[in-house]
Design a protein around this nucleic acid. Structure first.
Lengths: 225, 225
DNA sequence: ATTTTTTCTTCAGAATTTCTTCAGCTTACG
DNA sequence: CGTAAGCTGAAGAAATTCTGAAGAAAAAAT
């Protein structure tokens, strides 16, 4: 899962990042309204953790931005305030959940997972693409109801492709999504080739159609007709 | 996509070029205001990356030049300064976005793509020309709803023709757009003939009208009435 | 802490796709 | 009609992707 943490308190930011990274998520963070908007304009995230009290304005602006851009990242507000008003305002503008500081990281994670699940998976925890079905809670994949065991990278890749079905994903974008923007890969896409190959093989072995199409010179895309 | 990088820091220049080339873009660069103006006078670009602090003047002059010439390249300012004033000035004169150094290449690219899309295809992801429709996100082309598989050069060429429908495109301009100015072709247009032929054939096979007209001694144009 | 297992990355060669070159031919222009 | 420009199909060259195997790293188990 790829997260954006918008929070000006550096320590908290680092803790959250560390905690989520342990599960193999990709976390990026920023500490102002301005940089948050830039990030959101440029990248897609699965979930946004949003602090309301930011040095250059109120976090609500982020919600408004997402709404205006019709982006649909899940948003979880984390804020020191716990007045009912703020809470209602946040949920009203489109936040998916609200958590007041201080909180346990475990609780935060549980809420993130719940929020994301509610958002992306049609309430029943499942994402279905033709004969492929993904269960987020269990991180499991089935093809024609037969379980397929995927590694983390394969799973993330499949999720990303399904979330962007029909769109061409450049190898750079794929790498960015799977490894974060720090990965420097100067002309070497070998590991992408390998993961793609492995994912394809597993899906084919489970008798899924060959949806993953290579776009020569660009990247890949999940066929969607 | 064809880019011009105006930046006097050679290392940064090279990094950007390399990064963008990986996705099959064409990059050219220059390191002064003067050479930038020359380049812009002679060639068309999809997007210009503009540093403000140049050895022979402020990059804003480039924006003013483009405005005066009514050229419509998308411009993204990259600058060490991050004062609000500079930013506002840039956006005011006609820049499309502003990025302060240092930045991640991935972010730069995301912005370039966003800016370009906003500019040329008014945020719409489909480009339609009579019975030819192009899905930019999916990088697919259909003629009368029949899919046509194009190679990178063919696709870029078609996009270029449609973006310039009705205008005559010289073979030099076409080559320049597809290969950049490094391609040295001393009077040899064989590869253009070949790519044109292949594009035409694919479109005709899909029963598109023969829109691509040859202009003897000059180049081509996409018929538009 | 050490071993075992799993996953990730690297590598080199094969296969595939695209690009370029070329020679012969056709068409347009003066 | 002659010359230059453009078209075509085929073949060679180059770039990109795929593949299986092996080494490295990370995770799990002992």
């Amino acid at each position: 899962m790829k997260l954006l943490i918008i929070e000006d308190e550096q320590g908290l930011c680092d803790n959250i990042t560390k905690y989520f990274n342990e599960d193999g998520n990709i976390c990026e963070s920023c500490n102002s309204l301005k940089s948050a908007i830039y990030k959101l304009a440029d990248y897609d995230y699965d979930c946004v953790l949003l602090d309301i009290g930011l040095p250059d304005g109120e976090g609500f602006a982020v919600l408004e931005y997402l709404k205006a851009q019709m982006k649909n990242e899940a948003v979880l507000i984390i804020s020191a305030r716990n007045s009912l008003d703020d809470k209602l305002k946040g949920l009203d503008i489109g936040a998916d959940d609200y958590l007041t500081k201080p909180f346990h990281l475990a609780e935060l994670k549980a809420r993130v997972v719940a929020v994301f699940r509610r958002k992306v998976f049609n309430s029943n925890n499942k994402l279905i693409f033709n004969e492929i079905s993904i269960n987020l809670a269990g991180r499991t994949v089935k093809v024609n109801n037969i379980p397929v065991i995927l590694t983390r990278k394969e799973y993330d890749m499949l999720l990303y492709f399904i979330a962007n079905k029909g769109k061409v994903i450049s190898k750079n974008a794929l790498a960015e999504h799977l490894w974060g923007d720090e990965m420097d890969m100067h002309d070497n896409f070998d590991f992408i080739y390998t993961h793609i190959k492995n994912l394809r093989k597993k899906l084919l072995d489970a008798h899924a159609n060959d949806y993953l199409k290579s776009i020569y010179g660009i990247g890949y895309k999940l066929f969607a007709e």
